[in-house]
Simulated scan of single mutants.
Amino acid sequence: MSVTSHSKKGLLLIAMLAGAGSAGASAQTQGPPQSDLSATIYTSPAETAEMTEGPEVKGIISARSDDKVQVTTADGARTVVAVNDATKISASKGLFGLGRSKLAADSLLNGLPVTIRTLQSGGDLVASRITLQNKDLRTASMIHNGTAQRFDEQTAATEALRGRMGEIDQYNVKSTTNVNFDTGKAVLSAQAKNDLCATATAAEGMDNALLLVVGYTDATGELEYNQELSEKRAGRVVNYLQQACGWKPYRMLTPTGMAEADPVASNDTSEGKAQNRRVAVNVLVSKGLDGL
């Protein structure tokens, strides 16, 4: 593990740019965006009586948008079905589906296995009946509620921190930890893993500390390849910090890949190249908040 304050001006510029993107990074921890379901028709209960019987759709709800659901079947096919006031939604209560309870449309959660009987109008499908299992609904509800709670907590913490830092564009670099990589690789060594968690633990003790992760390569190879490799290395470090070291995503600025820029040693020697194949984990505290 090495600590340095190398090229602080360049680092601060990266931090400013990353700070502007941190909102997007936080949003990414909340999962992929909903699919575009806009192709589905809107129908009233009266209109469904004039439709013909459509195919039965069985699979997992993979997206939800207003009165439309997307179901992904076992073979990966995706089908969009409209849900209206005439749609009957029920969950089986007992063995072999004996006994059923009626449900509201807001019970159709992402990840829920369903079987849908449909009506067809042209190329569009409308759900006439949706059935599911109570045990699946309980599981989906637990996941949904737990995830929503974590996202709410994270969003609140992010906004509180961003609100205090909104007018500040300068940081104190409290420390920089470099972890190194083999040529062409993005695999963390045992030493690197230990150093990363030690850095996270030290930063955790600093109020208002953020981490800025920047990946680098040596000068070997094409610039485009090195750019991708530096980004991959940075991403690998971010994942380990969050998943293994417990660092909160909302305290992580957007990671950056800088390819072979800003070397810490000469690329003319193998020793220098080894030092340049690195990811720098910078512990930053806003100058306006440092010491608070």
Rank of each mutant, 00 (worst) to 15 (best):
T183P: 06
R162W: 13
P32M: 05
Q133H: 11
N134D: 09
I41M: 15
P113S: 00
G99C: 02
Y225E: 15
E271R: 07
A280V: 00
A280S: 15
S38Y: 00
P55W: 01
D262Q: 14
L17E: 15
T256K: 12
I130F: 06
T254Q: 12
R138G: 09
L284I: 08
K9T: 15
Q120G: 07
A280D: 03
T40A: 15
Q170L: 14
T115Q: 11
Q242Y: 03
L188A: 04
Q154T: 05
N84A: 03
S286E: 07
A46Y: 02
Q243K: 05
F151L: 08
G31K: 02
A23E: 07
W247R: 08
S101L: 12
L11K: 10
A140C: 06
K93Y: 09
T48C: 07
L292I: 08
S38L: 01
G235V: 04
D124C: 04
A140R: 02
L289H: 06
A209K: 02
G76Q: 06
Y225R: 14
Y225G: 13
L109K: 05
I116H: 02
L137R: 02
Q154V: 01
M16T: 15
A280E: 02
D106M: 01
T131G: 10
L109I: 06
L241E: 06
D207Q: 05
A63K: 03
C245W: 09
E53Q: 07
N145T: 10
A18S: 13
M16D: 14
A20Q: 07
S44A: 05
A160D: 14
T199K: 09
A280Y: 01
V173C: 13
R117K: 15
V237E: 04
L12I: 11
A244E: 13
D152N: 12
S175F: 05
E231L: 12
A198K: 11
A261F: 03
T87Q: 00
L112N: 01
G111T: 02
G99T: 05
S189T: 05
T48S: 12
V71P: 07
P55L: 04
L223I: 14
L98P: 09
F151A: 06
A127C: 02
L119I: 01
G31Q: 00
G94R: 01
S175P: 01
N208H: 13
N282V: 02
V283S: 07
G235R: 08
S270H: 08
L17H: 14
V114K: 04
D67N: 14
T40K: 12
L211Q: 03
W247V: 10
C245P: 03
G146A: 02
Y240V: 08
D218I: 08
G288A: 07
E167W: 08
T29A: 09
G146N: 03
M258V: 08
A186F: 03
A49W: 01
A202I: 01
E228C: 08
S175G: 10
E56M: 11
N110T: 14
G59E: 08
E56D: 10
D66V: 07
A198G: 12
A209N: 00
A77E: 10
